[in-house]
Design a protein around this nucleic acid. Structure first.
Length: 915
RNA sequence: GGGCGCUUAGCUCAGCUUGGUUAGAGCACCUGCCUUACAAGCAGGGGGUCGGGGGUUCGAGUCCCUCAGCGCCCACCA
């Protein structure tokens, strides 16, 4: 019953039911046999698994809408379309959340112990883990929920174990003591990617290290050679100057380094410098890493707290001295005065002590990048530590080649360069984390010294037979399991049918900031373990920002909750708004302070579609609709025009989607549907549907309307699935055509060749420009809205007369023109030339009160002339021009110019009315 | 320090790959309409020297150089 449709779209009334119907219909699911047995071409996307504890934010909203658009489109094209959903256990993030929960109970994870803590996390995850997936359903995501995976599922554990052991066997995983990024709050190692640099306004302190007396001669020589960093203290002692941004680390210095070729310091190499505050002396060494051009050309070396210094120590044999505890307090290795101090407190204390003894040579303001933990924001401490690493260079090679030779492509294209640059400079990956939540490292240690790396949990040491094996306490970086996602979700390392059918996937859509964390590593793992790329195309979506251009984030509180948008305005409104804004390579700005306004465009469009459908359902009536082919002879110009246009719109939509131009896809259809179907075709077809006297015209209109809406709804469905599916299901169906079970699986329109009709499009364009021009003139000359006029129309294309004749009734409907004469005319009235060269004249004598209109215009002219005279007088006044603020004068000039323009137009009008 | 990108209407952005009608959209604004699909609408309208400068060309928002401002990524310069 079409009367039931309310005049405003109520998304809540249709969306949840629609979604349930799709799920119940099994449309989201596809089995391997569709590919392996039926031979259908697959189309596969694996979802970027959101953190299991996450709540949906606008970034998810955008990314998953993008994926759903592609998925729905391909599904309609008949591909065996699979979108695999799931969540990530998100090691640090999840552990932090549960630790915070514990903290509210006054507990620490140590109070529970490892097992109980992990159990607690599982409880939490089991309770809340499904939330974000349910939220995806609300925005319409058509994932195959039967295949939902979690990165800690048994299958995926097996994959992780296999990959770790396999890489270890290939010597691509090793354990060693190196400087790694350490978060003193999370108490774990981090990868380079997890330590995010933040530009910070800091200081560079210059410190003096006194030289022993036997080096004073060499020091004096160095000074003479131009080494300004060598000098004498008040008491006559010579010293060297070194610089640092982290003075507290000087307590762990074990040397000072210069470049081997730096002649200035030649005599000082080998000298033992006094390290202030510590009572230690440290040697001056030569190492080629030191840049003689930079600063003093002399560097303090802190091997246990700096990556470069560690390497220098490796080459020069300097000692390693760790002066900090894991939680970044000064350790027992530091002088007593500083022990137990927090690092920044120690920084102040060290500086104060050095200052006291005259060892601070100066301070410069210094802006540099300070690494922070990507999870908690704590300043990362470079720390000497034994960890597990992956050798990345060999793995990167095929993944780099894949980008170079186009096996993997990127949208926007410029990410290709970013990806390749990173791949070319790839560094080893620290994968062990001192956490409890995650994939435990599959390595056991026997008291006999044997290290066992095994696919199966060992029960006894293969070397000594001992059973007192200890498993490595650490877990793997979350991204170690995420990188296997494209094949682990299909059951690898087992050779499953799913794997055969659905690997490799096609598109990977995600945020640019995890290109290195995740995308690059998936590609490397794909080549290493599957022998080919996990996906051919990487789509990096826009960043969602607020109206001030700031990234939406929890901490800024400037986020928009997609569920709130769905609730208030509908999923369709949200989807259209963000897709239409997601132009390649740009960001999306949404006003978080006025959500309704931010999504108004999408909401209005969904409502427009709704009303167009309502109109059709009411206007079509109950009778059977004939197939288009059966009414072919009765089609009128506007019918042939709109059929041709819907064909063109379909071609454009397909082209846009093929190129990942989702913005063009959405906007193109918006303009087609609103600007052509609604503004023109529906307006023209109204009277025909209501006119029972001309049955042939009415039937042609009904057939055309049904056909056009069917097509349009199909094209629109990927971006606004709910409103289109709802209306489509109610649309009457032409006789003789079989009807798909649901719009979600209706064929994507592609047979457009036979529908194109350039002649009809050209003729209709001529008609449109005539209507627009008549409307404009009517408005300009104050012709009342209901007032009919006659027009004269001459010149232009040969067939223009025929066009006007066939659309005569339409001209009356759209522009209130009841008489068209083909003869030239002039006199009192309005005249214009159309784009196609035809001349248009509207006699206004007797239509409007010409004398009154003339008087009205004259009055207006008088008024404007007065204003203009005033402006001119001001501008003629030297004092005003010289003394008034510049912008006031400029404004006056601008006003004058505007007034002159307006006057010219009015005078032209007057001339027409006098004729 | 390297690499990349951006600057077009009041705001947010398309358009540049392949130079060529009058540079577009949404929102905002002005005018007139509650015309029975839709006022979340209809009709009409105003608003841009395409960041500055230079060059190539018959022709530049589009290609090249340069300057300025903004942003992103990478990096061990103490």
């Amino acid at each position: 019953m079409t009367q039931e449709l309310p005049p405003r779209l109520e998304p809540r009334a249709i969306e949840p039911a629609r979604y349930r119907a799709w799920q119940d219909g099994g449309y989201f699911h596809v089995s391997a046999s569709a590919v392996l047995e039926e031979g259908r071409e697959p189309f596969v996307i694996v979802i970027p698994p959101p953190n299991v504890t996450a709540a949906l934010h606008m970034g998810h909203g955008l990314n998953n809408t993008v994926q759903d658009v592609l998925i729905r489109w391909r599904r309609m094209q008949g591909r065996a379309t699979l979108w695999v959903p799931g969540t990530d256990h998100a090691g640090i993030a999840t552990q932090n959340v549960v630790e915070r929960q514990l903290a509210t109970e006054g507990l620490h994870r140590d109070d529970l112990g490892r097992e109980e803590f992990v159990e607690r996390v599982w409880e939490f995850v089991t309770e809340t883990g499904g939330t974000i997936l349910d939220q995806l359903k609300a925005i319409g995501a058509s994932c195959d929920w039967e295949r939902t995976r979690f990165t800690l599922d048994d299958d995926l554990r097996r994959a992780v174990r296999e990959v770790f052991v396999s890489l270890y066997e290939k010597d691509l995983i090793y354990r060693g003591e190196y400087i790694i990024n350490w978060c003193p709050r999370c108490l774990t190692a981090l990868s380079n990617e997890e330590a995010e640099g933040e530009e910070t306004q800091g200081s560079l302190w210059h410190l003096r290290y006194p030289l022993p007396e036997d080096a004073w001669g060499a020091a004096a020589d160095a000074r003479k050679a131009g080494a300004e960093s060598v000098g004498q203290l008040d008491d006559g002692r010579w010293y060297l100057t070194v610089s640092t941004t982290r003075p507290e680390t000087m307590l762990g210095d074990t040397g000072v380094a210069v470049h081997p070729g730096d002649g200035r310091y030649e005599g000082l190499v080998g000298a033992n410098v006094e390290l202030p505050l510590t009572g230690r002396t440290i040697p001056v060494v030569a190492d080629h890493h030191v840049d003689p051009e930079f600063g003093s050309g002399m560097v303090k070396v802190t091997p246990a707290h700096d990556k470069n210094d560690f390497e220098i120590a490796g080459r020069t044999g300097l000692e390693l001295l760790d002066v900090m505890t894991p939680d970044a307090h000064m350790s027992d290795a530091a002088p007593e005065a500083f022990r137990g101090m927090e690092r920044f407190e120690a920084r102040e204390a060290v500086l104060a002590a050095l200052e006291d003894e005259g060892f601070v040579a100066g301070t410069d303001a210094h802006t540099h990048s300070v690494p922070r933990c990507y999870r908690c924001g704590t300043v990362v401490e470079p720390r000497l530590s034994e960890q597990w690493f992956v050798s990345m260079k060999p793995l990167a090679e095929p993944a780099l080649e894949a980008s170079r030779n186009g096996e993997v492509t990127f949208t926007p294209a410029h990410w290709k360069k970013v990806y390749e640059h990173w791949m070319e400079n790839i560094q080893d990956w620290c994968i062990s984390r001192q956490l409890w939540w995650g994939h435990r490292i599959p390595v056991w240690y026997c008291p006999c010294g044997e290290q066992i790396v095994s696919r199966e949990d060992p029960t006894a040491c293969p070397k000594c037979g001992g059973e007192a094996l200890e498993q490595d306490p650490d877990v793997l970086d979350t991204w170690f399991s995420s990188q296997l996602w494209p094949f682990s979700v299909f059951g690898w390392p087992k050779e499953t049918d799913d794997l055969k059918a659905f690997y490799p996937g096609h598109v990977l859509s995600t945020a640019p900031e995890i290109l290195f964390f995740w995308v690059a590593r998936m590609i490397m793992m794909g080549y290493e373990f599957m022998g080919e790329t996990p996906f051919r195309h990487v789509y990096l979506h826009a960043t969602v920002r607020d109206k001030y251009g700031r990234k939406m984030s929890k901490s800024l509180g400037n986020g928009i909750d997609p569920l709130h948008v769905v609730e208030e305005l509908g999923a369709d409104a949200m989807r259209y708004t963000i897709v239409s804004q997601a132009a390649v390579g740009t960001d999306i700005s949404l006003d978080h302070e006025n959500v309704e306004a931010a999504f108004a465009n999408g909401r209005n469009f969904a409502n427009k579609i709704w009303n167009a459908g309502r109109f059709a359902l009411m206007g079509l009536g109950q009778g059977p609709v004939r197939a288009l082919a059966d009414v072919g002879d009765d089609l009128r110009l506007e019918d042939r025009w709109i059929l041709s246009r819907v064909a063109a719109a379909g071609d454009e939509a397909t082209r846009s989607l093929e190129r990942f131009r989702l913005h063009d896809f959405a906007e193109g259809l918006y303009h087609f549907f609103w600007g052509e179907v609604c503004d023109w075709y529906l307006e023209l077809v109204k009277s025909r549907l209501a006119d029972d006297a001309d049955a042939r015209s009415k039937e042609a209109a009904r057939s055309t309307l049904v056909t056009v809406l069917d097509r349009a709804f199909r094209l629109l469905h990927p971006v606004v699935p709910f409103v289109t599916a709802e209306l489509w299901s109610r649309l009457p169906w032409p006789e003789g055509r079989s009807r798909p079970a649901d719009l979600i699986v209706a064929d994507w329109p592609s047979d457009h060749e036979s529908w194109g009709d350039e002649a009809a499009e050209g003729s209709f364009r001529d008609f449109q420009s005539l209507v627009v021009e008549v409307r404009r003139l009517r408005k300009e000359y104050g012709v009342g809205e209901g007032q009919r006029v006659g027009i004269h129309l001459w010149g232009g294309p040969d067939d223009f007369g025929d066009v006007i004749e066939s659309l005569g009734g339409a001209l009356d409907q759209l522009a209130r023109v009841d008489r068209v004469e083909a003869e030239p005319s002039s006199g009192v009235g309005a005249h214009a030339v159309l784009p196609n060269g035809a001349e248009l004249f509207i006699p206004l004598e007797g239509v409007i009160d010409v004398a009154r209109e003339r008087a009205r215009i004259e009055e207006e002219v008088g008024k404007l002339e007065g204003l203009l005279a005033g402006v001119r007088a001001r501008l003629a006044n030297q004092q005003f021009v010289e003394n008034a603020p510049e912008e006031v004068v400029a404004k006056a000039r601008e006003n004058g110019a505007q007034l002159e323009d307006q006057l010219a137009k009015l005078r032209e009008k007057l001339a027409g009315l006098r004729a």
